[in-house]
Design a protein around this nucleic acid. Structure first.
Lengths: 160, 160
DNA sequence: TGGTTTTAGTTGCATATGCAACATATAGGG
DNA sequence: CCCTATATGTTGCATATGCAACTAAAACCA
């Protein structure tokens, strides 16, 4: 056992009440609004939000993109993305094309059907998001985003 | 088709930029902090956060509780809870006991092992939450919780 | 009371997921 | 150049999940 200890502090302190309240609120409310949008998409017989995000990232990139470059913005593990791409390719929304520079991987690109699907999904997604967020006004929304990004340690989220 | 229209407005408007920013921040940051805590529990070879929440709600209730009364605070569907209870019962953390008043259902109660497990999980969960939330101070956390609850339409969350 | 509707909870089945192991290609170092 | 280490994706298998169909008890109601 250590003979000397610099300070006497609790080894691992319990979160303060405000922190716990924020934590709980974050879990509950994010789940609630996510479910609202997910339900809207399902009711419209459209694919999952994740599919939208893939299509959107590919469209935003504006060129064929490597899975590994998608994995980061999507917060997704490689094997998860691999199967997600499988399903989306099977539905004809994206295609895997050979990558000349690195024969291990490939490039992903939306098909025309993929572009169309993203638009179609946005027609449901947008209004559902609006509805889910209807209780806060724009200035509060900005404040909320700012606090969240500070919490997440993101410095400059305005660019993307 | 309608002969007269009161106003000329887009049928379903796109969310404003601040709303979209808040939406995206909410999704990303909540996922990020949740994953942080989930990883800490997994690394400690402890069960999922959901198990904690079940144990905690049962402990908080202070008496045997019906699944249907848990489903609401847990934001969980009946069939999900049914299987969650299966697994937790198999691990000896909770028990199903017969309900005299309503023979359809039963009551859930933590075992001693269940109580112990909740404490043990909190020893990891608490510090992990602290760590995940370390970037915001208490006053900001309160502001965040307030904004989130307003967004979710919850009036008085201070009680629970 | 007898019949219908609701509520509480479970389950069969198809699909999705996590994890660890795998295949293959590139990069790095003597 | 060869040998090892690392990076990029994929996959077998066990487990978890969503959905719809199901059982059974309670509530309603005529």
């Amino acid at each position: 056992m250590p003979v000397q200890q610099q300070r006497l502090e609790p080894v691992s302190s319990s979160p303060s009440d405000p922190i716990q309240r924020a934590w709980i609120a974050l879990g509950r409310i994010s789940q609630s609004v996510q479910m609202h949008v997910a339900a809207a998409l399902k009711q419209a017989k459209l694919p999952d939000l994740q599919w939208y995000t893939v299509l959107w990232e590919l469209e935003r990139a504006g060129r064929p993109t490597r899975p590994k470059d998608l994995a980061v913005p999507l917060f997704i593990l490689p094997y998860q993305l691999s199967r997600l791409v499988d399903r989306m390719e099977k539905e004809g929304l994206i295609v895997r094309i050979d990558c000349e520079e690195d024969k291990r991987g490939h490039l992903l690109e939306p098909t025309d059907k993929g572009f169309a699907m993203r638009k179609q999904m946005w027609a449901v997604y947008g209004p559902a998001m609006q509805q889910a967020m209807r209780r806060i006004a724009d200035p509060e929304a900005l404040k909320l985003a700012e606090l969240l990004y500070r919490l997440g340690g993101v410095d400059n989220p305005h660019g993307s």
